[in-house]
């Protein structure tokens, strides 16, 4: 790894990280602040939700109304949108740009003619992505924890909270590795941000679609969201070895392939 490059990239991406942390924290705080009001009006809401098709509730991540009555359950339902979807968008956009931006900004020629190896460039940039994604997850997780502590009406499983946070982190990192992979296989250097955001949204859509309709339930397995267990109120809630293997396996495989391809990539500016 090259310290000079690492520090420059950390500085370059700092403002964007802070902005994303603020946005996600704000969403979580606002949503959790509704929790108490939600509890006070639960009879009215139950009435309202009874006329909503079950599929639509599934789309919102509500499989059981009782899940919403606990602070952690309420957090888990909303966490899917804010921390998992937005966090994954942040992660894929950052990772897809970290190497490719040098190419379409035409600074790759400068960078790769410094006394650094391709390997050092790749590892420095990979470390920047990892540090940023980790920081985003840590801060937003802390914000979520504080929100639950403030608004909870009873006790909640801290272990379940951390497992859910670990799933979020694994999902974000997996999308990061997808972004990195796409950036090294793209032939003509150009921004692929919109395409990457599209991938996260399509994956989320496939996942929710598979939950709504039984006939297409199997296509859900194409989406990484499917492998995130959000049943935080299940007493046996834990991270399954299969899911852990899925996330770490795909992430490692894509990162190693990206690394190998980048080492031999022709750079044109």
């Amino acid at each position: 790894m090259n310290g000079n490059l690492f520090l420059k990239e950390i500085r370059r991406n700092f403002f964007s990280l802070i902005l994303w942390i603020i946005i996600i924290t704000l969403f979580i705080s606002v949503t959790m602040s509704i929790y108490r009001t939600f509890l006070e009006n639960q009879s009215k809401i139950v009435g309202m939700l009874s006329i909503v098709p079950a599929g639509l509730l599934q789309f919102k991540g509500i499989s059981n109304f009782n899940d919403l009555l606990s602070a952690l359950g309420f957090y888990a339902v909303n966490n899917i949108i804010y921390m998992m979807v937005l966090g994954s968008i942040y992660s894929i956009v950052l990772s897809s740009n970290i190497l490719l931006k040098e190419e379409y900004d035409k600074t790759a020629e400068y960078l790769l003619t410094r006394p650094v190896t391709r390997s050092e460039v790749f590892l420095s940039k990979l470390t920047v992505v990892s540090v940023n994604v980790l920081l985003l997850n840590l801060v937003t997780m802390l914000a979520g924890f504080i929100c639950i502590e403030i608004f909870k009406t009873g006790s909640f499983s801290i272990k379940a909270f951390f497992i859910l946070s670990l799933y979020t982190l694994l999902l974000n990192i997996l999308f990061g590795s997808i972004g990195l992979f796409l950036s090294v296989i793209v032939k003509r250097a150009r921004p692929i941000t919109t395409f990457c955001i599209g991938i996260v949204l399509i994956m989320y859509f496939i996942y929710t679609l598979s939950k709504i309709t039984d006939s297409v339930a199997k296509i859900g397995y194409l989406s990484p969201f499917k492998y995130v267990n959000t049943n935080v109120l299940d007493p046996a809630y834990n991270i399954s070895p299969g899911n852990l293997l899925y996330f770490t396996g795909i992430t490692l495989m894509l990162t190693i392939i990206s690394y190998r391809l980048y080492l031999r990539k022709d750079i044109y500016t």
Binding site: N4, K8, K106, E109, P115
Partner: peptide, 28 residues
């Protein structure tokens, strides 16, 4: 890497990081 410690290179298109000032870029 060892070669580039001892070689200077001027490309035909002089591109640098547009968000930096000249001193920042040269110090980098």
């Amino acid at each position: 890497k060892e070669i580039k410690q001892k070689v200077g290179y001027i490309p035909s298109d002089a591109n640098a990081y547009s968000s930096m000032d000249v001193n920042e870029f040269l110090e980098y």
